[in-house]
Design a protein around this nucleic acid. Sequence first.
RNA 1: GGGGACGUGGCGGAAUUGGCAGACGCACAUGACUUAGGAUCAUGUGGAGAAAUCCGUGGGGGUUCGAGUCCCCCCGUCCCCACCA
Length: 920
Amino acid sequence: MAEKYNPQQIEPKWQTRWEADGLYRSVIDESRPKHYALTMLPYPSGDLHIGHWYAMSPSDARARFMRMRGYNVMFPMGFDAFGLPAENAAISRNIHPKQWTYANIARMRIQMRTMGAMFDWDREAVSSDPEYYRWTEWFFLKFYEHGLAYKQMATVDFCPHCNTTLAREQVWGDDHHCERCGTPVIKKDLEQWFFRTTRFADEMMDHSKIDWPERVNVMQENWIGKSEGAHVKFVTQHGDELTVFTTRPDTLWGATFMVIAPEHPLVEKLTTDAQRKQVESYIANAKAQTEIERADATKDKTGVFTGSYAINPVNNEQIPIWIADYVLMGYGMGAIMAVPAHDQRDFEFARKFDLPVRVVIQPDGENLDGATQTEAYPGDGKMVNSGPFNGTSTDESVAKVTAWLEEKNLGHYAVNYRLRDWLISRQRYWGAPIPIIYCPTHGAVPVPEKDLPVLLPDDVEFMPTGESPLKFHAGFLNTTCPICGGPAKRETDTMDTFMCSSWYQLRYLSPKYDKGPFDPKEAAYWLPVDQYTGGIEHATMHLMYTRFFTKAMRECGIWDDTIKLRKPGQPPVDDEPMLALFNQGMILGEPRGGNTVVAKGSWEANRLNAATIQVVADSADELSISEDADTVFGEIVKRTENFLSIEKADGQQVTVEVLSDTKITDPGGNEITLADLRFHLDAEKMSKSKGNVVAPDQVVARYGADTVRGYLMFAFRWELGGPWDSQGIQGVVRWLNDVWNLVTDGRPQVAGQPSESDVRALRRKVHQTIQRVTEGLETFGFNTAVAALMELKNTLLAARKMPVVNDPAYDEAIATMLLLMAPFTPHVAEELWECIGRQYSVHTQPWPQFDPAIAKADEITLVVQVNGKVRDRIVVPADITEDDAKAKALASEGAQKYIGGNQPKKVFYVADRGMVNIVV
RNA sequence: GGGGACGUGGCGGAAUUGGCAGACGCACAUGACUUAGGAUCAUGUGGAGAAAUCCGUGGGGGUUCGAGUCCCCCCGUCCCCACCA
């Protein structure tokens, strides 16, 4: 009997060997097609989480598969190492962010090696290394030079917990909370640095050149929020132009008033003395409101009249200009023409303030009247009360009116976007410094390229002041002007860490290159990324930013050298960074029931002060426990420091206080502590506080990396994820044990000659498995691929009891199975490959070729249906003719029983399904 | 309010272009082997029924010889955007 499967022994052995042999070093090889497989890089927050395994090990399996298929594969790894948690650690634990970060990286590197992934560590990049952030700063300078970076005073989102401003993308949800910490943001007026992402709004709407999940595309398109319409020039009574954006220029004749945002620059000028008091109080009130209060669409419309009027350019009518907070300064022009008859918000406003409502779009067969309308009509119809356009229908009205506006020079076609420019300033230390120097004479001066990087000083005080810690570091702050040499001060904000991750896929190409952010030779060969994998949470953040970066780099000419070296016929490098994207789901914590307990004690108000708490066996007979007045019996659903919530059988929840002298016992009567009590957990996001975290190191130590990888790929649809199941992993344990024993036990002694049909059946199963595993890996269907491998294992176990095991087809089946397993369970595949005497390494072997002729069955089970219901199954030759199949089906016992004496009306034959349907 | 995804056994999940629903695995049941079992092996396992058989993919309609899959209407869950002009 051979040795038992012992992953702890074989896994480190092969990891060391692969590394020593440089098996996964990826170098340019023009003779092979390249494949750049990229998985989102981790933030070095501490230990490797099971979520990292879930994201990375299937990506690794696919990268390995591509390599066996003959691609020159690059699969790099690195660390997104700048960021706030490092700074928080500095504050709370008095450890330097750099020390904290690099210690975490060192630990995570070791943990990642246990995964057995084919990461090319020679290409590792760490974004907080000066050799890395030097180029992050360099990108900033290039963008600045080309007008893609600018500083501006703006009302911005500020997270009071993280003590920094945030980009719009990093403010989430109805309550406008910080994406990182969940704290609701507040508004501040600050001068901040922005990247002009809006320059590429239209380009980024286009997802036709990339194969990304529809969901991500839709989210990005929503986020960019393109709307087409027109800019129309209204003129105020003071002669100022007041341009509005509208998607419905065909309703211009129905504009009975205008509304501007409280922050609109013309407010002051338009406000008449008579209205001043009211206007000032309205604006003060608007300012005092939170963003959430203001954005509440359900609240009543509020507003105030400025006292001034504007001229509607299409009919020269004088219409009043109002101020209202439902018009937002940040969208469009911060001013609207109000068409109450056809816009619900305007309608509500008009009714509240008794402003005229004029119908200008009349729906077919109706007679809407502004005086009696009860809601706005936003639909189609014919234009009325609209001068030269009366009678025009909606399908052409917008285009016609827009053309007319252009002709009369009153307005023009316009596109408006919801997208805002990317705010990149962060008032914190652990990030790449913004390479700008402020000179009293020359203003904002970029740091000359030769002076990069602007190094982050180590000796910084970390205090949560709401200002960048760098501001208090005199050595950093004080410098000289690159133009005049006079005293000057550095910008003390650092860059959003999303900036670092916007180009990391480029740094991997040549992490040590010092003539630019990346080596054009490497870029010309490897780019773009062929397959990107990662979580959906980055849909409107990282995945927008990195697309912006690629396009902005084109604008700055950064791609020029790469393009010169590029072979023709490849997708462009300067358009989209990642050609294909796949989002994996998330591993949730394992659900479990709470302990069932009997608590006895005395009542104080609504809670029981427990004298004893007894854990009863889960199988305890509820009826045998008598519940009297001083007893609570049920499941623990919550546990806090000294309180338990116990859910009784009737669903009622009772709070039980655990006192210092409360006696807690387990079912065996042994005394245990409060912390030993298990409380109910649903399948939810893993978190330390819930105690449902699965530590990969522990499960790997127990089961081995191959088993953990196999389980993560087998148990869920990768894109969905799901709760960890500590029992479910047993299925994979058994699979690998079976495979191990199957191979290491060698060929069993079975008497007899293999029958030809058994040999064919075995080879058929092997080729069907090749097909299923190949397809699974191609389409990210890892779970069905593993299922197919388990089936093949089952087939082989059965074959070992038959003479077919003596046929060479059996050896071929074993070898093929190991090749097919190699991407999923690389260590055990390598070990067993060696065991059967094949040449190292299994991972550099060509992928097995699927042969449809072998996979094809020579006999099929013909399914016989009568009126769509299965009535018989008969075995027929696979190459049966249609006529024969129908005849056999009709003659079958099951069919005859249901046809009876009737004459079949029609008979359908589905050849590729082996099915006949008889209709009677 | 607008948009998107999804709904299949006790559970995770399989089912090319419409063609045998429930692959594979967990759990469970019975048996075997065992001092023991969270090991292993064998068998079974969608529901109802003794069986023949019938019913079954959230619900209701439709198209079709045939629907988990396509169409319409509901119900439910999750996600994104949202006084966006």
